[in-house]
Simulated assay, not measured.
Amino acid sequence: MTQRIVITGAAGGVGTLLRPRLARQGRTLRLLDVAPVPEPAEGEDVECVRLSVTDLPGMREALAGADAVIHLGGLSVEGPWEQILDININGTRTVLEAARRAGVPRVIVASSSHAVGFHPRGEGEAPDYLFPRPDTYYGVSKVAAEALGSLYHDRYGLDVICVRIGGCFEKPIATRQLATWLSPDDCARLMEALIAAPSPGFRVVWGVSDNARRWFSLDEARALGYEPEDDAERFAGELEGRHDPLDEIYLGGAFCSPELDADPDD
């Protein structure tokens, strides 16, 4: 039987990186985004759907027959509260509710290290399930996504795994990512593990590679079958000067800057 995996936000950075890495025989990728998703190449088993994650009837239809959802859709940086609320928070609730109505058993939710960004940098690894201390409205939306995932597991029995992603790019783009980088290949390895893990319930895991300078625990992710193979250290020589002083103070680094304070009253 063909396995069907839905990816929301499939036209975005992480979705684009995952698309070829999650392709396999016997699997259909259903790719959702409000932006255009490139049409299938010859021999590629994908279905492209133009859709907003805030559209509950559309999401319910798009999730029909899916075995799992990887929810990446939403704003990936700080933005106005109204947009964060609608797209990231309401959008995540819509995806979970659509999954419930469509009978999808598992949702993997992209959370972020910015859910805990105002935690001070410590000497050791930040533990799994570190208590939320968001650094932005964006970080708040990821805390809300985790809370919604917990609710939909406890109330409705969905398996929901929230991945606090450090930063997934082809290669690290700043010094902090020598600690927080999630390589595209390791991102795919993590998603495969989370798709396959038997009856995970509700979990929160860190989404990072096995970096020599890693700030975050991988215990919970490894318990679910993740075996990272990459280390950002090989890029260290390319990142001279790409450093923010706040990286030494907070887990959220520059996201804790006063430059991201809420707009003053009119």
Rank of each mutant, 00 (worst) to 15 (best):
M1A: 08
G15R: 00
R24T: 03
Q25N: 11
L29K: 00
D33L: 05
P38Y: 09
P40L: 09
A41E: 13
V46F: 10
V49T: 10
L51R: 09
S52P: 06
V53W: 06
V53E: 03
L56S: 08
M59C: 12
E61P: 04
G65H: 11
V69K: 05
I84H: 05
N88Q: 10
T94F: 09
T94K: 08
A98D: 02
R101M: 10
G103D: 08
V104K: 07
I108Y: 01
V109F: 00
V109Q: 00
V116H: 01
F118N: 03
H119V: 13
G122R: 12
G124R: 12
G124V: 02
D128M: 07
F131T: 15
F131V: 15
P132K: 14
D135W: 04
G139L: 14
V140G: 03
K142N: 11
A147W: 15
G149I: 08
G149Q: 10
L151F: 15
H153F: 13
G157P: 14
V163Y: 00
R164Q: 07
R164W: 06
K171T: 15
I173Y: 03
A174V: 08
T175W: 11
R176P: 02
R176A: 15
L182Y: 00
D185K: 02
R189F: 09
A196M: 10
A197H: 03
R203I: 05
R203H: 07
R203T: 07
S209W: 08
R213K: 12
E227C: 13
P228E: 06
E238A: 15
P245E: 10
E248H: 08
C256I: 02
P258N: 09
E259I: 08
A262V: 09
D265F: 04
